[in-house]
Design a protein around this nucleic acid. Sequence first.
DNA 1: GTGAAAGCGCTAACAT
DNA 2: ATGTTAGCGCTTTCAC
Lengths: 330, 330
Amino acid sequence: MKRITIYDVAKEADVSLATVSRVINGSEVVREDTRVKVQEAIEKLGYKPNAIAQGLALQKTTTIALIVPEASFFYTGQIINGLIDVAKIYKYNIVLHTATEGIIEMNDIIETIIKSRVDGVVIFNDKLSKNELNTLTRYQVPIVVIGNKMSDDTIGSVYVDYSKLVYDFTTKYLNKGITDIALVEDRKNPAMIKQLFDGISRAFADAGKSFDNYIEIPKDYRSSYLFLQEYFKSHKHELVITYRDSQAMAVLNTAAENNIRIPEDMEVVCILDSKYNAMARPQISGFKIPDYDLGAVAMRVMTKMLHDEDEVIDKEIELSYIYSPRKSTK
Amino acid sequence: MKRITIYDVAKEADVSLATVSRVINGSEVVREDTRVKVQEAIEKLGYKPNAIAQGLALQKTTTIALIVPEASFFYTGQIINGLIDVAKIYKYNIVLHTATEGIIEMNDIIETIIKSRVDGVVIFNDKLSKNELNTLTRYQVPIVVIGNKMSDDTIGSVYVDYSKLVYDFTTKYLNKGITDIALVEDRKNPAMIKQLFDGISRAFADAGKSFDNYIEIPKDYRSSYLFLQEYFKSHKHELVITYRDSQAMAVLNTAAENNIRIPEDMEVVCILDSKYNAMARPQISGFKIPDYDLGAVAMRVMTKMLHDEDEVIDKEIELSYIYSPRKSTK
DNA sequence: GTGAAAGCGCTAACAT
DNA sequence: ATGTTAGCGCTTTCAC
């Protein structure tokens, strides 16, 4: 079955291919009856414009590349949904790349991205530094970063200020006289840890105190569970802050085993809220991060960078969060 | 900055573009010294072949489309990871499409897929019937379906037989004399419900009994929680089977509130295991579904359909599961 | 072993 | 309002 082309349509409708092209692209200058004639031919033949050929001719692909950390779909899912939903509106395709650790692989991804001539790339990576983007910026590809504040001629970003979040939350507790606050985190995400640590430290500093309860736990649930099981035999804090739901649950479970009542003896809060926080017992308080919006807004910024070239647009967009107090805090 | 093309390289290396093309594509017929000469030119200019132009010339894009149900990333994440990992190996790009309910949107997606001239499409959709694929098959695009057993000239599939899973599990309990078995499910996924229902019904039938404890619950956690809270005031079963972790947790939580001890008074098992099952208290027994493999194998089948055109390949691949007994069952 | 030229399907001046 | 034609960047016969 030969793929039917614009020539076939032209012949069928007895016009030139230029006219067919005009019809496809909704040019105004085509007379109504010939437009109908062409439309019928298109319909009859079941013609679908070849996006690849269009891409070659127009020097743009209407596809953007999305890079997400591998195996991060638990918290990336909504971001992708948001991204794709607005991509659909603007008729963009999304090619998905997953990046593991390691700069070598990142270079591979960038290589294929460059070759595929995407119109832009969105990177979700809270670990990424602006410097690491140089490989990409060299090729003049518009970039939107999700998770890190930065901007530039060809770079935009959408993010949540976790440092501020933690600062405000910590300050609230310090003001209540609660000072035995601990931060539980693994080393999976250094940049995130830094933000959290900065926020809590600043809060302590502003209160004339210093923060020193950073508890580093293993990366996987099982090990961190065992670690905390031991830890809470001899420790207890007024407030424990964790980043992910699994960490909060590990705290919950191990505290219970050590007869630490939550929230009476110890309060627990989870930064990155999830539906599982509401299923745990006691239900875990957390901050609702607007993941869907992070993706949607990122794509929106992308389209602006791509279309409204003249207009000055805001390239650093901070999104807000909502605190959901539940049963693990007083 | 002008994008540098194969012509630029040809000029720089003082050869024809045909030769450059040969070097790029690793043709054997190029003399060693000219190959080196060309390579140096490529290096010097930082030339990256334009995949779009290659696509046009070769009539193939080395990209495959992946369609997943929207907002399903919790159980789709690993599938995508597996898919992408083997796609990388074979140098394929993945363009991601999310499908909501509704045939209209599906047609939109298929439309853009056809236009983008992908080499194949992988569909993760346990609701999909072979009939609905016709729109796609008409265009001769190789298809691999994840989650449903089916095959055809241009269709392959990778799946887990949930019906069998439930049949075996139920039979085991029936053999122990446990007959008060209930299936808790919402109506999110009719095809899946059918599989589960079929399996359990067959088991009962083979034991000379009939199954009638299908408990339909609301789709979201909150409502189903309230529903079950009421339900367990007046009901209790020897074994409750749920599909998703959130459903199992709802059962756990509401049972606890009604003083039903698990597993002493009632056992609970979750078909689709997740890490959260191990964090619940009591820990929930479940079946480990090989999601990563589903994706990886699907992509492998795809590449086979694309490359080894002559060779006969197995187009219906059933993957197995592993039972993880934990604390919610005896 | 290497070059010349046609063609992949489409868009966008430029003509008419 | 519509047709002609020159690219877009690359692959691949066919000559040499």
